[in-house]
Design a binder for these strands. Structure first.
Lengths: 352, 352
DNA sequence: ATATTTTTTGCAACCGGTTGCAAAAAAAAT
DNA sequence: ATTTTTTTTGCAACCGGTTGCAAAAAATAT
């Protein structure tokens, strides 16, 4: 009895090393049943008697069998693969995003197939590639790509959601994110509340939708305050270096009292320029960022910023993409999550 | 003529939206050739006459066909999928790692299937999952997991390389990374050269192989210097908070003159604790990190650190994994890349 | 022109699974 | 014990491709 168990274990642990890929057929033969029976044993909710299931499971265990997801996808039409497409691989926030996406997808039995766009903005290659792999759905995670990028997937018949994307009134694809416009306004109000009279927007790249929208909102909110002067400039990327470079440039002429920066990493670059110029934050210059990435609360940074609820955004994105897989004709939806100012040390206290 | 073109375009652009997945068969029928002919047209180096190739390509274009990689993998035995497994999703360095891996793999026509281990240390689930997807190979990117983790893949017959893994004299899997031991010694020499007499290692988690090895090297190098006192402590993770917490604790008693921190992010946490204690770097305390992640050279951090050449490590890892896919019996190799000290502002100049 | 060699082509089997269907077995009803 | 109903089972076709093989076609040699 003990010997038998031992033999069994030995055999089992030998097998995988030697022989690649145990197949359904081998299990069927060993268990003395049809291939269908084996298939059914491993298919949720299929009809198998307890007796055959036992035989099959025993044989499968002995052989170290686990069903080939690729092969089964051929008939079921589901690969459980989700394309995760982004061009954001240099922003620390994106690491948090990847972490949450992978965990969220895994929790639902889905696998992320990662696509790094680098600087590519044409969706054609990604679409072709992800269709070749028959992904069940695609998540485009980018605050810079235009809606047309995600739409290319929809046009190819692939369920898609654009996370961190631009809100449009008549969306053609699901969009989950924040109202960048509203965030711009929120930043403006924050600066107004602090009595700043010369404020500025230090944006990301001018062609990033998020920068465009945040600027719009910022300016709109300030339009009703003619006593406040506003200026606008752009960093060449959402990056530390770009933020630092732009702020360094700004400090050479007469600068504003407070800056709304396009995002956190830009803010941190700006802060470093400010420190190097011998100015103090928030006394001499105020800075408010956007994102609230993990690093923003590091004590040596301590950035006042607008929090974007990325965990919720990502949850909703996943939910929406799986929803669309189940019902491909589902109407495109826009889900925007509210943001809020996180008070830290780079903006002085509101007046009064 | 123009009308014909137009009609053609319209048809083509209509198709993808409506109908999922154009198949080989449909192309074959439209082109009036056998399915084999179509298959061969899309297979590198297969025998097709110019005439049929033209017919097939025309039909394929019209239908918007592109071959199904999943289906073909069934017969070719190659999915071109590479599992990228890690537990490192909170270290900013890892974003750079993911960026380089995805780009490197994509450049070779391979697709990264990302697996986030979170805190899981048992390889069983990852192995099963990645085998179900028939990945061609696996890259385990972790400086904390033991060799046995990657070995589980090899035991399952999956080509694997452990990037950033521990060096062993008789490796059972490919290991690419750095000599952590040597790095520990390098750090020690750097501190010795600066004339520090009380030095310390502020490690990462005690069970991380990288921390164990760096400590070993550090202590070994200092063993020959009885005039220098050494102490050792551990942060509970490779994270800002952990580094800060541990340094805060250390500063409560009499602290060392210079610290070799387990990695950069730990160093940054430590630096923030030092700053908050009103001490100055490098005058009052010196810090040297390890990794040289992008952030280390930010001017507001300006960390003296030991550079780990991650681009080379990743290139080599990819090369090794594809090499093993081609020759599965390839002997396990260890490739260690040299590191070097990057002088910045957190360690005073060497003496003399 | 015919014979020989080379290239191209389609047939059919296969990769590793799933699934509709009808027959067989088991369970429930009579 | 027989009939009816329900469950389980295997057959065979299929998913979307690839590939060995032999026949057909084209190219080259005689």
């Amino acid at each position: 009895m003990f010997l038998k168990m031992l033999a069994c274990i030995t055999k089992a642990s030998n097998h995988p090393g030697k022989r690649m890929a145990v197949t359904l057929k081998e299990v069927a033969e060993r268990a003395g049943v049809s291939r269908s029976a084996v298939s059914r044993t491993f298919t949720e909710g299929a009809s198998v008697s307890a007796k055959t299931r036992a035989k099959v499971e025993k044989a499968a265990k002995a052989l170290g069998y686990s069903p080939n997801a690729i092969a089964s996808s051929l008939t079921t039409g589901r690969t459980k693969l989700i394309g995760l497409v982004s061009n954001n691989f240099h922003n620390p926030l994106f690491l948090e995003v990847v972490d949450l996406f992978t965990r969220g997808l895994q929790a639902r039995g889905l696998r992320p197939l990662l696509v790094n766009l680098s600087n590519e903005t044409d969706p054609a290659n990604s679409v072709r590639m992800l269709r070749q792999y028959s992904v069940d759905g695609v998540i485009v995670a980018s605050s810079t790509l235009p809606p047309s990028f995600a739409e290319a997937f929809r046009d190819a018949g692939v369920p898609v959601v654009h996370s961190f994307g631009r809100y449009t009134t008549s969306p053609h694809v699901h969009v989950v994110g924040i109202d960048n416009n509203a965030c711009g306004r929120m930043a403006a109000y924050a600066l107004i509340a602090r009595g700043h009279k010369r404020v500025a927007f230090l944006g990301g790249p001018e062609n990033a939708t998020s920068t465009q929208d945040r600027e719009r909102g910022f300016l709109d909110a300030l339009a009703g305050h003619p006593d406040i002067s506003v200026s606008v400039s752009y960093a060449r990327a959402y990056s530390f270096d770009a933020g630092r470079a732009e702020m360094t440039r700004l400090l050479q002429s007469s600068h504003a009292e407070a800056y709304f920066c396009g995002d956190d990493v830009l803010s941190i670059g700006a802060l470093s320029a400010i420190a190097d110029a011998g100015l103090h934050v928030p006394q001499d210059i105020g800075v408010i960022g956007l994102n609230d990435m993990a690093m923003a609360r590091w004590q040596n940074i301590n950035l006042t910023t607008i929090r974007q609820p990325i965990a919720e955004i990502i949850e909703a994105s996943i939910e929406l993409v799986v929803g669309t897989i189940d019902r491909p004709d589902r109407h495109p939806e826009t889900r925007l999550f509210p943001c809020r100012v996180i008070e830290r040390g780079t903006l002085r206290k509101p007046e009064g």
